[in-house]
Amino acid sequence: MNDFLDWARDLSPVVAAAWLFGANLVSFAVAMALGHLATHSLSRHRVSLPPDPLETRELLYTAVGFVVNWLITIAAWFLWRHGFVVIRRDTGWRAWLDVPILVLVMDLAMYMLHRIVHLPWLFPIHRLHHHYDRPRPLSLFVLNPLETLGFGLLWLVVILLYPSSWLGLSTYLGINLGAGMMGHLGVEPFPGWWSRVPVLRQLGTSTFHAQHHQDVHHNFGFYTLIWDRLFGTLLPTYDAQFGHPLAVPPADASHSV
């Protein structure tokens, strides 16, 4: 891995941009493939109604969001190359400790940003994502470009302030993609007892985020339910309705919380 890091750091900007484009494309393709496999194989475990027919603008916003995410990764590479971002090379216990640190810090930061974009003067930016209240795997990427940029800049700030190991950072990025995809499956991959196990019940699920798409007043977290439980924004019926469609009419996404 040290040789790979040396190679990546010494790339020319053009080659680095091309390589990062390919890496982002592979990540997107893998996420889509696994997401559609899950929705097909778990079709009997829907937690939201089947999505409406795919719209052209969903594809357009996905393409624009892909470009924004690609530019964010180029910025991260540039900052790393010039020493502003530090990526440690150790692989011991400290490297593995980076994983829960990054997950919890980013989870809190994204929870806060998510609450902010639900404020009345910013909700028009976020409304696009809530227009699709019957999520499909692609819905993860259907965001206003400003929102995509905001979450990307948040990640840049965290890695600027926290010198993570390559092991911790790459593991976190995998968790981030997996958690985001799971939240937009529209089906629940976890068994019914999941929400009754003390530790597991704190992890984000497809049910959790599908409920947010239906009720804009609750469930703002991403990887965990910790901050929603702590700040009182978890849907009160989440545990009882785990694995089932939300038993209330969809909230009006034209207003915020």
Rank of each mutant, 00 (worst) to 15 (best):
L185E: 04
G186T: 06
V187F: 00
P189W: 02
F190A: 14
P191F: 04
G192A: 10
W194C: 03
W194N: 03
S195L: 13
V197C: 09
V197Q: 12
V199E: 04
L200R: 13
L200Y: 13
R201D: 09
L203W: 14
G204I: 02
T205I: 00
T207C: 02
T207A: 01
F208T: 00
F208E: 00
F208H: 03
H209R: 00
A210P: 11
A210F: 10
V216W: 11
V216Q: 13
H217K: 12
H218L: 12
N219C: 11
F220S: 02
F220G: 02
G221D: 03
G221I: 04
T224D: 12
T224L: 13
L225W: 07
L225E: 06
I226D: 09
W227P: 02
W227A: 05
W227L: 03
D228E: 01
L230G: 01
L230Q: 01
T233G: 10
T233Y: 07
L234S: 15
L234D: 13
L235I: 08
P236K: 06
P236M: 06
T237E: 15
D239F: 15
A240K: 15
A240L: 15
F242R: 05
G243H: 09
H244G: 07
L246I: 10
P249G: 07
D252T: 03
D252S: 04
A253I: 03
S254I: 07
H255C: 08
H255N: 10
H255K: 08
H255W: 13
S256Y: 13
